[in-house]
């Protein structure tokens, strides 16, 4: 069976939405970070799919860069989680409401 480009995009969209819903729903910081990684991966997939669809390497190049930056982001995020844990002794995000008016 032939694969249409939209199917690949739909897959990427699906993974993205799963990740997004996870971010909305979860209270644990590390879990939220993992869902963010999912979203980034979904974006990556979308890029690669376009590269395949349009026979252009640019999409794959971008995917490489996104990967690198996402890894950096994950590292910093985890560092923050660890120091947060040191301060709060808990990984529960429900009590962090410093942005509230």
């Amino acid at each position: 069976m032939k694969i249409d480009p939209w199917m690949v995009q739909a897959l990427a969209a699906g993974i993205f939405m799963i990740g997004f819903a996870g971010v909305l729903v979860r209270r644990n910081v590390i879990a939220m970070l993992m869902c963010v990684e999912l979203m980034l991966n979904a974006a990556n997939m979308s890029f690669v799919a376009y590269a395949w669809q349009h026979a252009d390497m640019a999409g794959q190049a971008v995917a490489v860069f996104v990967m690198a930056v996402a890894a950096a982001g994950a590292a910093v995020g985890l560092a923050i989680v660890v120091s947060l844990f040191r301060a709060l002794r808990s990984a529960d995000t429900g009590g962090i409401t410093l942005l509230k008016e």
């Binding site: 909305l24 995000t93 962090i96 509230k100 008016e101």
Partner: peptide, 12 residues
């Protein structure tokens, strides 16, 4: 003001 819960996920 009730919208400003301070919780990130609500904003998301």
């Amino acid at each position: 003001r009730k919208l400003q819960t301070g919780q990130l996920q609500a904003y998301a």
